[in-house]
Design a protein around this nucleic acid. Structure first.
Lengths: 350, 350
DNA sequence: CTGAAAGCGCTTACAG
DNA sequence: CTGAAAGCGCTTACAG
């Protein structure tokens, strides 16, 4: 591996001058620059990133902190990770994945000086990692928000998203709408920003329209979905539409409903919130989803972090993106609102 | 941030001695060691990993090379990434995610000296990245195999896995068994090791038992599944069981079959190969799956790489792990082999 | 068992 | 426009 000194020798200049052209930090006369570039080509020179990091005290590496607990499936998370990784590279940074158990381990890692900053995902409403980061001096960016909404963040606009979902269902004629979301033994899922904010937006909407809020929390799996169907029958049989914030329970829910004699969408409609088209297609009937802007969030998150590293004031940057409604086959008018099938039964008909 | 020099000053020793206790590279007398450890605690010393990397020419970072093209959903990939990341940390390494378009970009990145080695995923049978790596001197490990089976690797044992699947189906009484796998415009999916090896093992099995091989390749989505159902009816109506190597087409396949009047599992059985329990649960009926050992592969892959970095001879290490059969609801005896329902119809009955 | 010193490959004021 | 030189914070023969 050729070093900068090798290039300097071959071009007949000092190592400093090579550094200037490699980094574009100072003007170098065209002839000198040409000689240096030729030398670099001939020697296939690649600047050693470790040496650069030590000398400049900037590693150009950023960490993506992912909680070990939360390795949920979900195309959303994967899309987000990949977008962040690509976005970092596009700006000359590398993304390292750091599985972080708790805030203590996090500080430990951050103190090693390997990374210039950190990007947090799966942010909880009460997130000790964030508390630790604000007291430390490590630059960071959040995908999601804690309860402290004065910090910068990029996140899904849950209010707008739930609004869209509700409008879609209301336009179809639904009034009794329930929310089915996720839960686990640790309480981790229940404290996630998306869970909390979706529920808040849902309750707010129901209160505004004078309806009753029905929230059912079940584990993120097929059994959870079946349980949700049963509890809905027992606790709120009037419900004709479900907001689903638990994609892994989707198939179980459809199945549970069917086993109780209710089919989707003719008896009950389902809208999956903050999901993906791919996940929606895994269900029969194909789910109507509010597609999470995973790639956009990944990109915006990494941009916020890198902007900050490069001196841009991001302290006031708070970005909210809504999910996009993608119609599937799981939503339809509620039974009573639907016009009867044949002309014979049409009320007030001929 | 305290430096090693700060620690040395406070403990009244030289910086070299501090380095010896930090790294455990030389014996240090108990009293000296105690003084140094106290100083480290008091100063909250953390060794600067960048400086260590430059001095030792070992960064303790390894890259996980993931093709940008192949950002497929799939719990398997995510599980594997997380296991590799955890496994690396457990051995004192960090994993960086590198989205790599092609082998040229890969070499470029590797030349920067940031990583000690690379772990490849989504290995294709003809993989230019691997060709490039063997000619370079960068240590690497493969999750998957190319056509060149003299290289070390860790991979799924497709022969054993297909064997298990076939035995399960054969035990139930199936004989006409088809393979439905994946395909895309680029041909990328078709060249993936798992696709190629599953098909080879399937054909071999069918030939051995004197059956006809039926292979249907469709896009990895709901429409693909529906297409597969139609083609099966047209091209091989005798088929009573399907090996599915395309989890994203699963729901479409079940649905397509049903729309053609064939239900799962009473008319047609399905076994999903190299899938996950989570994905199987996304389908109704819950799929019988051959669960991929994602976490084990991630762990073994990272271990192979790190062992190599630490001087262990891994040149002969080839590990194959079978998938595990997890029974769902999608497999049952074929229609004709099943005993009729009531005693009235029992052949040879009273 | 401990230390002085060279060196890893760069960046960056500073001087000319 | 170009260069000499200090310095980033460690590791590692080598010497004692």
């Amino acid at each position: 591996m050729a070093t900068m000194q090798d290039v300097a020798d071959r071009a007949g200049v000092s190592i400093a001058t090579v550094s200037y052209v490699v980094n574009g930090t100072k003007n170098v006369s065209p002839p000198t620059r040409a000689r240096i570039e030729a030398a670099m080509d001939e020697l296939r020179y690649r600047r050693n990133v470790v040496a650069r990091a030590l000398a400049s005290s900037r590693t150009h590496i950023v960490a993506l902190l992912h909680p070990v607990l939360g390795n949920r499936l979900g195309g959303t998370v994967m899309g987000f990770v990949i977008a962040a990784s690509n976005g970092a590279r596009a700006r000359g940074y590398d993304l390292v994945l750091w599985p972080v158990e708790d805030e203590e381990q996090m500080s430990h890692l951050l103190a090693g000086g390997l990374v210039d900053g950190a990007l947090l995902m799966e942010v909880r409403v009460h997130d000790p990692r964030v508390d630790e980061l604000v007291t430390s001096s490590v630059p960071f960016a959040l995908i999601g928000r804690t309860h402290d909404e004065t910090l910068p963040f990029v996140d899904i606009d849950f209010a707008a998203t739930i609004d869209t979902a509700m409008r879609h269902l209301t336009d179809l004629g639904h009034q009794a709408i329930a929310l089915v979301d996720g839960n686990d033994e640790t309480g981790w899922v229940a404290d996630l920003g998306p869970t909390v904010r979706t529920e808040a937006a849902y309750r707010e909407h129901m209160t505004a329209v004078g309806g009753r809020s029905v929230v059912i929390s079940v584990p993120p799996n097929a059994a959870g979905g079946i349980e949700a169907a049963r509890r809905l029958r027992d606790e709120a049989p009037e419900v004709t539409a479900i907001l689903l914030m638990n994609e892994q329970a989707a198939t179980g829910l459809v199945r549970g409903l069917r086993e109780l004699g209710r089919s989707v969408p003719s008896d009950v409609s389902i809208v999956a919130v903050s999901s993906s088209i791919e996940m929606g297609e895994m269900v029969d009937p194909v789910l109507t989803v509010l597609e999470a802007p995973a790639r956009e969030l990944g990109q915006l998150g990494i941009d916020a972090l890198i902007d900050q590293l490069e001196g841009v004031d991001t302290s006031r940057r708070q970005v909210l993106l809504p999910c996009t409604l993608v119609l599937g086959e799981s939503t339809a008018p509620p039974p009573r609102a639907r016009p009867p099938a044949g002309p014979a039964a049409r009320p007030g008909g001929h």
